[in-house]
Amino acid sequence: MALNTPQITPTKKITVRAIGEELPRGDYQRCPQCDMLFSLPEINSHQSAYCPRCQAKIRDGRDWSLTRLAAMAFTMLLLMPFAWGEPLLHIWLLGIRIDANVMQGIWQMTKQGDAITGSMVFFCVIGAPLILVTSIAYLWFGNRLGMNLRPVLLMLERLKEWVMLDIYLVGIGVASIKVQDYAHIQAGVGLFSFVALVILTTVTLSHLNVEELWERFYPQRPATRRDEKLRVCLGCHFTGYPDQRGRCPRCHIPLRLRRRHSLQKCWAALLASIVLLLPANLLPISIIYLNGGRQEDTILSGIMSLASSNIAVAGIVFIASILVPFTKVIVMFTLLLSIHFKCQQGLRTRILLLRMVTWIGRWSMLDLFVISLTMSLINRDQILAFTMGPAAFYFGAAVILTILAVEWLDSRLLWDAHESGNARFDD
């Protein structure tokens, strides 16, 4: 018995066209964080690309023209004298008006014999932002004059995390709450300039795509075929072959399989920071003279006294001054041990922890910024005066060393310790 099946006739004509040209192939790229070699397709503007294995951002879609970056830099340069030299806060102490600005706080630190601690604050609040705007201006002028731009481009990517104007702005709020127990506070004209400078700096850093600047100024022929001998440069993120001198053909720094002496430098910085954190938390970090009496505060006791007036601000200072430094030390110690013992479990967790400490590390400088600003506000000789204690130097040095330890660690070593050939990683 035959089955009668109805015929289905399409209502619209289906047209099949042959592909007349070869589909576009992607360029081969190595991930600078996990060293995976993959094919990167062509990316349009405002599109980002991520590593298929570790999800690290390979290409950032946010990109401004150099002219727009230069305009932002010149605007920031105009704001800087007002943000640093004009009063941020006014207080009335014992019937006398006192003005506080950024430069005055750094000068008070240096004047009291601790120039190293003052230079830490100076670099993060004044030096690094000033280098940022002058570097962008150098790129703008240098591109037109045919100057060598490689050193500036190499420095810009590392400079971003040292620009800490946003953290200093939080420190202004913390210092205001600490001082309000002794005097009446009012915002100064410099505060508005400083807030504007923070906003412009944040926007500029978020749109400063150094890798795209490398592509514009020093374009290189990408690798179009897969080759395990391809290496990625950690300076400019170019994937290719080393030249005859073993250097990256684009930025001219040595092109090595792994960062040289990464573990040794990381261990040295980490152990030194552990040693410095002990006096930083045991010795007094601030000293207040009130009517001839002397009151010393460690980091913890200062947080407890701050909690009596504002528990939320005390929580912020606790996280930045105690929780973050010790968390960074514990995480980095764990990561280094996992590399030495070739741990194969929990790779995803370790990668996330490394990215976390990379982002939060700079916030530990908050305590030094609060001390710097408070020193310029309260300084009335023996009637009422505020000065920093010996722990300030140890704390600042420990924070900087932990930042350097994270920067010096080559994250690809975590993958080397893991089993080879993993296309995915999980716990």
Results as ranks from 00 to 15, higher is better:
Leu352Arg: 09
Leu139Arg: 01
Glu42Met: 05
Lys160Leu: 09
Ile303Lys: 00
Lys178Phe: 01
Ala73Lys: 09
Ile58Phe: 05
Asp60His: 06
Glu419Thr: 08
Met36Ala: 09
Ile98Asp: 02
Asp35Glu: 05
Leu283Met: 11
Pro325Met: 01
Glu161Leu: 12
Asn281His: 04
Tyr168Ser: 05
Arg355Ser: 14
Asp60Asn: 05
Leu69Tyr: 12
Met76Ala: 03
Leu149Val: 14
Leu153Met: 12
Ser376Ala: 11
Asn148Ala: 05
Gly113Met: 14
Thr349Cys: 11
Arg53Cys: 09
Thr9Trp: 05
Ile91Asp: 02
Pro10Thr: 10
Thr387Lys: 05
Val203Met: 08
Phe38Cys: 05
Arg158Asn: 13
Glu296Tyr: 13
Ile316Asn: 05
Gly95Asp: 01
Gln104Lys: 05
Leu132His: 05
Ala405His: 03
Phe192His: 10
Ser411Asn: 11
Leu276His: 09
Ser305Asp: 01
Lys12Leu: 05
Ile351His: 14
His184Asp: 11
Gly113Ile: 14
Glu228Ala: 11
Gly26Gln: 06
Thr134Ser: 13
Leu323Cys: 15
Ile98Lys: 03
Gly361Arg: 01
Phe238Asn: 09
Phe123Pro: 00
Pro10Leu: 07
Gln345Cys: 12
His418Cys: 04
Thr327Ser: 15
Ile177Lys: 03
Ile43Tyr: 10
Ser305Lys: 09
Gln382Leu: 09
Leu205His: 13
Met1Pro: 00
Tyr394Lys: 01
Ile199Glu: 06
Glu42Lys: 07
Asn209Thr: 09
Asn379Val: 03
Phe369His: 05
Ile285Asp: 00
Arg260Asp: 09
Leu159His: 03
Leu66Ile: 12
Gly302Glu: 00
Arg158Glu: 12
Lys342Phe: 13
Leu200Ala: 09
Met1His: 00
Ile288Leu: 04
Ser420Met: 11
Ile378His: 00
Phe192Ile: 10
Pro390Tyr: 06
Arg231Thr: 12
Val331Glu: 03
Trp415Arg: 09
Ile319Cys: 13
Ser338Gln: 15
Arg250His: 13
Val275Asn: 10
Gly246Tyr: 13
Ile400Asn: 09
Arg380Leu: 02
Ile288Pro: 01
Lys57Asp: 04
Leu384Asp: 00
Thr75Ala: 08
Val313Cys: 09
Thr349His: 15
Trp140Met: 14
Ser321Asp: 00
Pro151Ala: 07
Gly113Glu: 08
Arg17Met: 08
Val102Pro: 03
Leu353Cys: 14
Ala269Met: 04
Met365Ile: 07
Trp415Leu: 10
His340Gly: 11
Phe74Gly: 09
Pro81Glu: 07
Asp99Glu: 06
His207Asn: 14
Thr15Lys: 10
Ala417Asn: 10
Ser262Gly: 11
Asn101Pro: 05
Arg221Thr: 14
Arg25Met: 07
Trp64Pro: 10
Leu205Lys: 14
Asn422Lys: 11
Ala397Val: 09
Phe369Met: 06
Gln220Met: 11
Arg158Gln: 15
Gly142Asn: 01
Thr15Ile: 07
Gly85Ile: 03
Ser338Ala: 14
Met1Phe: 00
Arg259Trp: 15
Ile360Phe: 08
Leu149Asp: 01
Leu306Ile: 14
Gly293Tyr: 09
Gln108Gly: 14
Cys54Leu: 00
Ser286Asn: 00
Gln7Gly: 09
Gly235Ala: 09
Leu306Met: 09
Trp92Val: 03
Gly302His: 01
Asp367Cys: 00
Phe341His: 08
Ile311Trp: 15
Thr204Asp: 06
Val121Ala: 11
Gln345Val: 13
Thr67Val: 12
Ile167Asn: 03
Phe238Cys: 12
Leu139Asn: 03
Gly61Cys: 12
Ile106Asp: 01
Thr117His: 02
Leu159Cys: 03
Met356Asp: 06
Gly26Val: 09
Trp140Thr: 15
Cys251Thr: 00
